[in-house]
Design a protein around this nucleic acid. Structure first.
Lengths: 114, 114
DNA sequence: CCCACTGTACCGCGATTGTCGAACAAAGGG
DNA sequence: CCCTTTGTTCGACAATCGCGGTACAGTGGG
């Protein structure tokens, strides 16, 4: 099973934004950004249980928009953020989004802003 | 007609991203960012003709997500980017998105990247 | 005062999205 | 070898989206 990923030049910011404009996928990006090797179920567990087929759908959206690499390895798929490509195409975007997501989470957990 | 806008603290990055993860609304943001006072039809004309009711829908999405202010003035509505609030909540996000959109446009017009 | 202008409200339509369950496929481990 | 693990594919479903048309509402100009 080989996945189709867009080339760096084929990435469109519109697709990136709509891919990450979804709580589940934004959370996935944050997990992947935290580092380490991840397969599908490890991310899935971090997010609370969801059907596997639902996640397969989200992987496809993230893949097609150019946000992640998805590489088969043994009987798993390894998931990695395409940070280099995103940073090259859209400097500062990924960092702004990820730290923005952290800020939102802090707000919702009742922490008052400074 | 008074519009409901979210407070700065109620803005969620997920909503901002999905609002701008759409070609028309991203284009609207770029027009507003270019400066000047804008009413609905002036933006609408810049984008090529679309039904007024369609744009009303997009204004609502942009408003509800906290991306724009929409203020009635006479028989028009003035549209303004909420740059201060967005920059405060998500430093660098708006600039990254807008310059990313410009970069995409350049790519699609056949200009090769440097 | 009436009309032209600007934009909203409401409705309907087809397409897409997010979610799930069930069946399938590939890879390893015993 | 078989069975478990991992994830995909397919089909279904409700909900939302994007878009337009028509009707309405408020403002301001003549």
């Amino acid at each position: 099973m080989a996945f189709r990923h867009p080339d760096r030049d084929q990435i469109r910011i519109e697709d990136v934004l709509s891919a990450l404009g979804n709580g589940v996928r934004l959370a996935v990006a944050r997990v992947l950004d935290a580092g380490g090797e991840h397969n599908c179920t490890s991310v899935l567990n971090t997010l609370g249980i969801t059907a596997k087929s639902t996640m397969t759908h989200h992987w496809r959206v993230l893949r097609d928009s150019g946000v992640i690499w998805q590489r088969p390895s043994g009987r798993e798929n390894l998931l990695v953020l395409r940070r280099e490509d995103l940073d090259a195409r859209y400097p500062g975007l990924l960092d702004a989004i990820l730290s923005g997501a952290r800020a939102d989470e802090a707000l919702e957990h009742g922490d008052r802003p400074a």
